[in-house]
Design a protein around this nucleic acid. Structure first.
Lengths: 138, 138
DNA sequence: TCAAGATCTGGACTGAGTCAAGAAAAAGAT
DNA sequence: ATCTTTTTCTTGACTCAGTCCAGATCTTGA
């Protein structure tokens, strides 16, 4: 990833130490919860409020710098891999989350036979199953 | 839907007034939250505890009598349409949720080019967009 | 350097769901 | 119809994930 300061400025986002730390934490720990990111930031810069973490995540997401997903039964997860409409595969047993390339590479990558008059802008796909580790121990 | 008492017995679920009322509420109001279902049950049988609603929903879901989905940013939603792996289309503006037939009709209906060693049992697809009503008023 | 606006802090609060003890009800046997 | 056992329901407390808000602090641009 390029310099986070440059990345933020290029997206019109004022640069703060908290935002840089949050972005670095998401880069280091893809598919993490806000709480995990907060802990990583605290280890990195010493202190940050929960509100600042949520605000930074919301701003970075709205500017397209990071991506927010929220699989069923999970809190929100964040990642820096953006722009390719990749999907995810999640283990039902341990929650491990991995990326899956999108065959199309952009939204929407599927069409609905009958879209009920909706204008579709995204087909969110999540593959659910069991990861190799949990398969091995069952 | 067949007689709810028969449906419950056929699935090995003891019949209680609360479970029947919850099942009827989900039938009447597909894609509803637990809270909406509780309100409908209270209108129907007079009183039910939140715990009983959550318990009934969990039991009915585990027996495959109803289906639980949880789109990003939403509480859990419940519906009685089961067994056909249909997908959903959701309006980003007002939250309206509609069913979309699955082209395959069973799980998993998509495969991942690279499944990272996972054994996949479901490809959850959610179409996001704008519904006709929200399109018309924008 | 300064002022204006944005952001952060700290703590209170909300919504969705879970936990647990005791009361009530369902099922099955008699 | 009755009884016993097990399950379910009720009630209230609790947790987790996220939001709200007032005041302090910081960033940006002049």
């Amino acid at each position: 990833m390029s310099d986070p300061t440059v990345l933020l400025r290029n997206h019109g986002v004022p640069v703060t130490a908290q935002r840089i730390a949050v972005l670095n934490a998401v880069t280091k720990l893809p598919h993490s919860t806000a709480d995990t990111i907060a802990e990583e930031v605290r280890a990195s810069i010493g202190a940050i409020s929960k509100q600042a973490v949520y605000d930074a995540l919301a701003t970075l997401t709205s500017k397209g710098i990071i991506r927010r997903i929220q699989p069923a039964g999970s809190p929100a997860l964040f990642e820096t891999r953006v722009g390719d409409n990749h999907h995810h595969i999640i283990c039902r047993t341990c929650g491990t989350t991995a990326d899956v390339d999108c065959a199309v590479g952009e939204r929407p990558c599927l069409s609905a036979a009958d879209n009920s008059g909706f204008k579709i802008d995204e087909a969110e796909v999540i593959f659910w199953g069991t990861c190799p580790d949990c398969l091995a121990s069952s």
